[in-house]
């Protein structure tokens, strides 16, 4: 290898190392900022802080949803996961569904994943389908019953909400209850 080529290779390697270091550094900065924001006492406060940080850092809503999802799943942090619902698109539904079905994870974290799922789906057909599938696949050792999922829907929608009524009509509540 000539001296010239060797210098070029060396510069390329150094640039690559610098880029990796910069990327991991900026990622650490984002993680640490999210960690701090997640400790804000009031939910509304957290929303304001996260949105301001996201806009200032130039992340799109979809990118931000990905960042929050990674941080939440690494730390089993249900509040960070819940915050993700404001940014997530339907692209995230499969990952969220995997969490709902993952019996190894903490129940409250799985419930949060379901809430985000329902919010992103707009309490639509996919949400009722998920509860129905959960009902069929219910394992006696699984602490997350379909009935619990059903109660989440009740918690999120006012009693006179049209979507709730249509959801109630679509769902076979009795079957979910039997598996409780």
């Amino acid at each position: 290898m000539s001296k010239k080529v060797r210098v070029v290779v060396m510069v390329a390697v150094l640039c690559g190392l610098h880029a990796v270091a910069e990327e991991s550094c900026s990622r650490d900065v984002v993680v640490s900022a999210v960690e701090r924001m997640s400790r804000l006492e009031h939910a509304q406060d957290r929303l304001e802080a996260m949105e301001a940080y996201r806009v200032r850092s130039g992340f799109s809503a979809e990118e931000w949803a990905g960042i929050l999802f990674d941080i939440a799943t690494n730390r089993n942090d249900r509040f960070v996961l819940q915050d993700m619902s404001r940014y997530a698109s339907t692209n995230r539904l499969e990952s969220l569904e995997a969490i709902v079905f993952d019996a190894e994870r903490e129940r409250s974290f799985r419930l949060a994943a379901f809430r985000v799922y329902a919010l992103v789906d707009g309490f639509g057909e996919r949400t009722s389908s998920l509860v129905a599938r959960k009902s069929r696949a219910q394992n006696p050792d699984d602490q997350l019953s379909p009935r619990k999922l059903w109660l989440q829907i009740n918690a999120m929608l006012p009693t006179n909400d049209v979507r709730r009524m249509s959801f109630e009509n679509r769902m076979n509540i009795r079957q979910a209850g039997e598996n409780d």
Partner: peptide, 14 residues
Amino acid sequence: NENWLSISSSNSAQ
């Protein structure tokens, strides 16, 4: 009342 076990802070009716 099991409907109140899980509360959504944005659901004021609840």
